[in-house]
Nucleic acid binder design. Structure first.
Lengths: 153, 153
DNA sequence: AAAATAAATTGCAAGATGCAAGTAAAAATT
DNA sequence: AATTTTTACTTGCATCTTGCAATTTATTTT
């Protein structure tokens, strides 16, 4: 006889302390969280399959657990397409979209400071525009995301 | 007879691909890197002891390996105080100071989106000022850091 | 009915992090 | 000068996280 143990999912996240920055990193500070957010925000990924097929090649078990975590935190939402019971849609919430400035700053820092170390890094001409008008660029990315996903709400 | 194996330190960092954002996260995307940067930038930590005594309580072996890594990447520099051969000084380089916008954005996102989950999060009145004039605030943090550390150069 | 697809879960291997204890060199105290 | 304390580590082992391959379940397509 098999006994199924019901592992309780801990919604009271374990934070290292009272510092806001450290608390943000208690959520985002790992190998995958912000990569998944980036894939949704600027690479149009929304289904489990989309993420699996991405360049970064996340393993299915990790993806599954990270998506669960992001959903519990309210950073993404999980929905279904009307005529398809198989495919789940993962979409950024406002809380998730509010991460856009962080993604943009990571982009800029990387372009200026990591390019020398990663010889195969892609050169995106957008970064110049991004730098010249950060706020507008951030707003553009968000509006773009909302426009592309509004049909699913 | 003991044989000391010389473990080669891999300066060709393993990146997941050509995306600038993912590459930044290949460096910064873990539990400690940005926490250490934050401690240096806004909590004035500069010696091994300073970091060990911090709220976040990093273990000595982890701290040692992370500092080594940050130094190899050129994000921090390791120096000595003139009349003290024991204490090392770890200071942010320009590359490290350029992370300030990321730290500021993490602060803002956390204040707005993590406060509800981490009940013990500290409320810093600076965040209002930070939001009203981001660029000036970033510049202020950097200038402040440079002013406080210039005596060591 | 059979094959293919999407979204997982499972078991085990490998890597990262955590903890306690120990060490070496320098500095401070006696 | 000898002892103690301090700083910056290293080492060994436990645990937690991530990675990989295979399997599973439900759904959709052929």
């Amino acid at each position: 006889m098999q006994v199924k143990i019901n592992v309780h999912i801990n919604m009271d996240y374990k934070f290292r302390g009272q510092c806001p920055i450290t608390s943000a990193l208690d959520i985002l500070g790992d190998k995958w969280m912000l990569v998944i957010i980036k894939q949704m925000l600027i690479e149009d990924k929304k289904t489990f399959k989309d993420f699996i097929e991405s360049d970064e090649a996340i393993a299915t078990n990790i993806l599954s657990s990270k998506l669960k975590c992001l959903e519990e935190l309210g950073i993404i939402s999980k929905t279904q397409i009307p005529d398809n019971k198989k495919t789940n849609l993962y979409l950024l919430t406002e809380k998730g979209l509010a991460l856009t400035p962080i993604i943009v700053e990571l982009s800029i820092w990387s372009d200026e400071n990591v390019r020398g170390i990663n010889s195969i890094m892609r050169d995106s001409p957008e970064i110049a525009i991004m730098k010249s008008n950060k706020d507008a660029f951030i707003q553009m990315i968000k509006d773009n995301y909302k426009a592309k996903t509004e049909k699913y709400y």
